[in-house]
């Protein structure tokens, strides 16, 4: 482990080592992931692709500290997630990782601004400071004027923008986006992708996204292809474009 860290000069934010995940026991056991070893670099835009049932979402949950692997280890910022207590895991989720979901998952009973400030309050930020940064972030995603609206009063694209602002609340190093455009129409989806790409460049935040949206692949620095619980192929942007041209 130590050797590989020295050998790699790039900044590794997430590393998985032989990660496997099994659901259920005995005969009914399903192996969703079957030994995935990978490294994700700081500041890159990574897409994880794979058909449904390939283990894509499971790998995604492992990387985000939302679930613990049955075997193998996941390191986020060189910390083994399995060794963290519930409280430390909450801290990791609060400070290091921002989450964006296919179904937006805003807190329905709170306003857009309150949704963005909530993670900051969990981090112990004073309320007025949190509100100020919350407004800044809503302005950044172009929703400053709708800060007092509740999620039910916003369109899907707007909700996803709020979710993006919320994911940025505590200056995360990593943003995990689970099919962020899955519930959006083409044009809105493109806007969300452009916004993510912009944040990736401007704020140097690592974006890891599970997707089968091809618009998403065009902006990715690297693409992980997952098949049957294994990492089948790692494609760089150049390779993806080349193969895309070959196909066209």
């Amino acid at each position: 482990m130590e050797n590989s860290r020295e050998a790699n000069t790039q900044d590794v934010v997430v590393r998985t080592v032989d990660v496997a995940k099994q659901y259920g026991e005995g005969e009914a056991a399903v192996r969703a992931l079957n030994g995935v070893t990978c490294e994700i670099y700081g500041g890159e835009y990574l897409s994880i692709m794979g058909p449904s049932g390939s283990g894509k979402s499971t790998l995604f949950n492992m990387i985000g500290g939302l679930d613990k692997p049955s075997e193998g280890s996941v390191f986020v910022n060189s910390v083994d997630i399995a060794e963290l207590t519930a409280r430390e895991l909450a801290f990791l989720r609060c400070h290091t990782i921002g989450y964006i979901f296919q179904t937006f998952n805003l807190i329905t009973v709170r306003t857009a601004l309150e949704n963005v400030t909530l993670p900051m309050l969990f981090a112990g930020t004073p309320p007025d400071e949190a509100e100020e940064r919350g407004m800044e972030l809503l302005d950044l995603v172009g929703l400053g004027h709708r800060y007092h609206h509740r999620p039910t009063e916003l369109s899907g694209g707007q909700q996803q923008r709020v979710a993006i602002a919320r994911s940025l609340a505590n200056h995360p190093r990593i943003i995990l986006a689970d099919e962020p455009t899955g519930n959006l129409d083409l044009k809105t989806g493109q806007e969300i992708i452009d916004l993510l790409r912009l944040l990736n460049r401007d704020q140097n935040v690592t974006i890891i996204s599970a997707t089968h949206d091809h618009k998403m692949l065009d902006v990715s620095d690297r693409i992980f292809h997952i098949r049957d619980g294994k990492l089948a192929k790692i494609e760089t942007k150049e390779e993806a474009i080349a193969s895309g041209h070959a196909a066209a």
Binding site: G64, L66, A86, R87, A90, F91, R93, C94, H95, Y99, F101, N105, L106, I107, T108, L118, P119, F122, A123, R166, N170
Partner: peptide
């Protein structure tokens, strides 16, 4: 439950 899962992702502790 989903709301609970979401709040957990935002960094809420179990006790919160």
């Amino acid at each position: 439950f989903r709301e609970i899962g979401t709040i957990k992702c935002l960094g809420a502790s179990d006790s919160f």
